[in-house]
Design a protein around this nucleic acid. Structure first.
Length: 336
DNA sequence: TTTACTAGACCTCTTACTTCA
DNA sequence: ACTGAAGTAAGAGGTCTAGTA
């Protein structure tokens, strides 16, 4: 097993999980990358990047869900799905967004229950975004229904209220995105974790959010992903470090035993002590099994042990770099 | 071709608000 | 009802890159 550790800073301006670590990187972000390969010596950045992608935090594959008709690459409205296919209501609504807005009377006042529904559904009277709630059942089958217009109007009203509040200098309350909006953004994020301006505008339009809100959501989402990724990597490193530390202890003990043995019987050992060690080819554990065959001894001898000692030596650096994992001094094993 | 400037995108850190146990 | 922790939307300030004069 080859074990290496890269510590570097993620260059800004591009996603760190896809970015090569360069010397010129700046920022305070800590990028931990662990490479685990068997019998490979690939130091090229490109290959490292492949390893990073393998280490990427991947959520379990989501259960089959109705395909979202996200069309973020162009501003063209997505195609209408078959009626039986469940869709997010605003997606359905926004497929007809242009049509709705074309026929939308800006002077139209939504019914009271439509306007009040949001505030009653949210604990925060100022939560303008979460106040924008749409009933799925009511949305299904809408074409140019008044309900769709009402929802759009309600969203429009809350949006304009927000802008009014900002313009009036009132304290801006933190907005809470609805579950549906978050779910839709999440689906978008799975497709593209960054947005170009057109995609941002399209998404904002679809969700009745401001482009800035979409932008911020994606920024925060990327930050959460990176944080999660780092946490997973740290846990992985901890486990590896613990395993290797234990093995290091065991090997140190074996070396001590062998030295003691040599001291007691200096003339009975005509070959290096390490040659009495054997490495199990399946589990790669070094063992001084007296019953092991001579052929195995020859195959798994000093070189293998030295190789492992180098690994352990490098692991000591990891242990030093890895936080909060007490590790004993791991000097290079000295054989003879 | 090089240099300075600018706008936009993104990152990290932080704050403030919401939700929940 | 109160409280603290966790989650998260949003602001601030910084860097980098591409475009342009």
């Amino acid at each position: 097993m080859e074990l290496g550790l890269r510590l570097g800073t993620a260059p800004a301006g591009r996603p760190s999980w896809a970015a090569p670590v360069t010397e010129g990187g700046r920022g305070s972000g800590l990028l931990l990358t662990m490479r685990l390969g068997v019998g490979r010596h690939d130091d090229e950045v490109g290959e490292v990047r492949e390893e990073e992608e393998d280490m990427e935090v991947r959520e379990p594959p989501p259960p089959p869900s109705p395909p979202l008709q996200l069309n973020l690459l162009t501003l063209a409205p997505p195609e209408l799905p078959p009626p039986s296919r469940p869709q997010f209501p605003w997606a359905t609504e926004n497929r007809n967004f242009d049509g709705l807005m074309r026929g939308f009377d800006v002077n139209w006042t939504p019914p009271l229950e439509a306007a009040d529904e949001g505030t009653s559904s949210s604990s925060s009277p100022n939560s303008t975004v979460s106040s924008f709630r749409i009933e799925f059942s009511a949305q299904r089958g809408w074409g140019e229904s008044a309900g769709g217009a009402a929802a759009a109007a309600a969203a429009e009203m809350t949006s304009s209220k927000l802008e009014d509040d900002e313009e009036n200098g009132l304290a801006r309350k933190k907005l809470r995105l609805s579950k549906e909006q978050s779910a839709f953004l999440e689906e978008s994020f799975k497709q593209h974790n960054t947005l170009n301006p057109n995609q941002k505008l399209a998404l904002a339009k679809q969700l009745n959010l401001r482009p800035r809100q979409v932008e911020v959501w994606f920024q925060n989402r990327r930050a959460r992903t990176k944080l999660k990724h780092t946490e997973v990597q740290c846990e992985y490193l901890k486990r590896c470090c613990q395993t290797l530390t234990e093995e290091n202890h065991r090997l140190h003990k074996e070396v001590a035993d062998l030295k003691a043995l040599k001291t007691c019987h200096p003339f009975s050992m005509h070959f290096p002590a390490a040659t009495t060690l054997s490495m199990c080819t399946s589990c790669e554990r070094v063992a001084s099994n007296p019953a092991i065959s001579a052929a195995d001894r020859q195959t798994n001898s000093t070189a293998a042990l030295f190789s492992r000692s180098r690994v352990l030596s490098s692991v000591s650096h990891i242990a030093a770099a890895a936080p909060r994992q007490p590790s004993p001094p791991t000097d290079r094993l000295e054989l003879m």
